[in-house]
Design a protein around this nucleic acid. Sequence first.
RNA 1: GGUGGCUUAGCUCAGUUGGUCCAGAGCGUUCGCCUCACACGCGAAAGGUCACUGGUUCGAGUCCAGUAGCCACCACCA
Length: 906
Amino acid sequence: MQDKYPKSYAPGQVEKKWFDLWQRNQIYVASADSPKPGYSILMPPPNITGILHFGHVLNITIQDIYIRWKRMQGYEVCWFPGTDHAGIATQTRVEKELAKEGLTRYALGREKFLERVWKWKEEYGGIILRQLRELGISCDWSRTLFTMDESASNAVREVFIRLFDEGLIYRGKRIINWSPLSRTALSDEEVEFREVKEYLYTLRYYFVDSEDYLLVATVRPETIFGDVAVAVNPNDDRYKHFIGKQVHVPLANRPVPVIADDYADPTFGTGCVKITPAHDPNDFEVGQRHNLPIINSINPDGTLNEYAGEFCGLERFEARKKIVERLVERNLIEKIEDYVHNVGFSQRGGEPVEPYLSDQWFVRMKPLAEIALKPVLDGRIKFYPKHWEKTYQHWLENVRDWCISRQLWWGHRIPVYYAPDGRYTAARNEEEALAKLGLAKDVPLEQDPDVLDTWFSSWLWPLTTMRWLHDGVTEDTPDLRKFLPTDLLVTAPDIIFFWVARMIMATMKFKNQIPFKDVYFTSTIRDGLGRKLSKSLGNSPDPLMIIEKYGADATRFTMTYLSPLGQDVRMEIDVKTQDIPSMEIGRNFANKIWNAARFLLMKRDMVELPECCPSNQEKQLQVGELSYADRWILSRLHSTILKVNRNLENYRINDYAKLLYDFVWRDFCDWYVEILKVELKDTNEVSFNQALMRFALDIFDNILRLIHPVMPFISEEIWHLISRKPEFESISLQPFPMYIKDFIDEEIEWNFEIFQLVVEEIRKLRNEIGIDVNKRIDLILNTQNQELFSMLVQNKDALSFLVRANEVKILDKSVENVRAISSVVREVEIHLLITSDIDISKERERVSKEIERLRNNIDSILSKLNNTAFLGKAKPEVIEKEKAKLESMNETLSKLEKLFARLSEL
RNA sequence: GGUGGCUUAGCUCAGUUGGUCCAGAGCGUUCGCCUCACACGCGAAAGGUCACUGGUUCGAGUCCAGUAGCCACCACCA
């Protein structure tokens, strides 16, 4: 029998077995025609270049919890998976591979290069999804979508054309964020600011017609070759009279005018600013105001161009060093000071972004922001935690136009065609473009070489996953009707602007519907030092290794257990071994569940329970009289069911996990299973034992179903062992436990708590006076409280077992002159009979301490009850409670005092 | 600079609308146990002026204001 159910739970094979079976039986494929109400979640599509990290683990686990919970609640559930083509990341990746072969994308040409990328995608692009599977997720793989699939691409193209025709997409020459590494424009969101220590150089700009000079401060001396003016504030008396004069740009020796503009802050630096329109957004605006020329002195790859003279070809930071050297040489630097300021870095490439003037495509955001703000403000879309709504609102109200063109090859090509006369339009193909432009059929057109920002396809995710415009035409599909709006989006807060806001914009704009009802922002995972997990810090263990070591269930459970809504998660990470010790929480819990099951199964086999599966509780209740403990665990179960549902509804997933943990470990294992041992031993009647086991297994079956959303594998495994169902069936298709109010018995729960306190007090006494664990004790318990007396009598055998007692006497009147160590708990006197001498002074100390504690409590209650303000203003039930408490405490106190008096007599 | 969050036991954190017998858990520490499901376990113990100041209230860890420290996001002047 020992071999039939292994002693400790081994997740590896179990998890693999069930995942394969779930796949083979296709139990997670959703039907848009189902009569059941729909419930849907869009999986945030991971990048095809991505590898699984703990952010995914948490995110995916939460989604699977909701998907499984709702499925068990009887919804037609659909979880849409997919992957993102990740323009820059993927292109960079493949270019690196080419570099190893001594090739570049330019050498290969656009078409050949894209072939390579597709090949790479076919080979490696699915890895991340396969890794996700290891977690046991139950998404509908038949609906997997890639953002560059034809159906999605069709929708992207249509959306571009529509927005273009409406004037919401436009082309313009602007200062954008340029990534010299990837040689492409970036959106504002792709730039992150970091504080850096640099130098502030104060340069001398000599007047053309005198020996005098202006002092101009800059952190970027390499941009002087793009200078077209020096600005001073019109109200700055120091410089007023220089306005209109000419100064020489240092080294360049080019004369530029001194102009007046409010942009120059007299209180900052010297009060003079060099104006470099091509390399600074503010300067660009100043330049526009004053009709200044624009000199672009930096190449797309970040090197200086011919305007820089002798510095031409140098990389911008290298150039800075050389230029400063030369400036010092020529005595053109007044001073160099330490300077700390914020610099924008490319989120992906990590290099400082270059403000760069170029022609790009933009989406006009104002009108879209307005329609996206509404559903969040009026509560149709709810954020969890709520405070993100404010961040969202602030962003939308201050949003700037979105630069969507990327100078890449991998991505959705911009569907814009240019005519030889310089005009252009957005169209599905050349033919249509010619027609739109009113040109003859043989006029050659050129398509825009750029591609779209990756997020320009991601923002359509709620629509493209449901095949909206999959052929460029079809507006309505069964999936859209059934599953839009989706019910929940689970995502990290750092893509609230990138993705969440834009999906709301797009779905509102094109479908006039919200994309999702609830948005859950996941916790950021940090290591023991509070740092984000990252590969470079070495504090980001491979989840697959962790899953292999602890099991997917354990990993899922631990992550859930540790993730409070709206709070960061901290996990100790052993950098050396790449281990996460806190995963033991889940592993130990899984093992505990396994062993509880093992115990029940062994007992079931012992009593030869014939049925294959437990029936429902209502039937059980009629079968036979339930014991006190039975009624208690049933009541606790239903309290737990109620709270589980409430916690899941409110996205309090860590509370959900904790609740299960405590219920299973504390209530079920520590108390119920222990008492069950006594009850089974109590009688030789087979039918009684069978009924009892049927009941216990039924409780456990409920536990398995409660736990299934977070621990799908172990619950499936044990459920099959208990139910003996064929393998094609699944616990994930069973109903989630229903809360039945009639099973809640507050009186039982209350009294049982006292029972627990009594047991604990007796164990404490045993421990304190050092009674050998194997020695059985004799006890006398007495109480005048009839209810408690009856409870104790009913639980006498259980109590005796739990405290390892020999003989237990339960009386409803007080006892005199017993040779015992005594204590009082909630009106129950406990006398542990002993044969040896009592250490009276120790006993007196113990009892008097207890008396003092109780008196303090009584005093505080009395002061409340003597306070007329309290009596006048507190709720009646609160007052009643205080009175009852006082009464009970007084009762306990008088017993203690008697006890103490007796000790004094000895 | 703006906004939001956090500050409870040695560590990591719970504490849902203010009131349930001294504010809870896990880890760690100490003591005792291989008690016939589980040592990934069982029983027990020690450990907290709930950051600080003030206010509201009959009553505050819980609500409000201020102070300090930490964190995140947004903005950003050479």
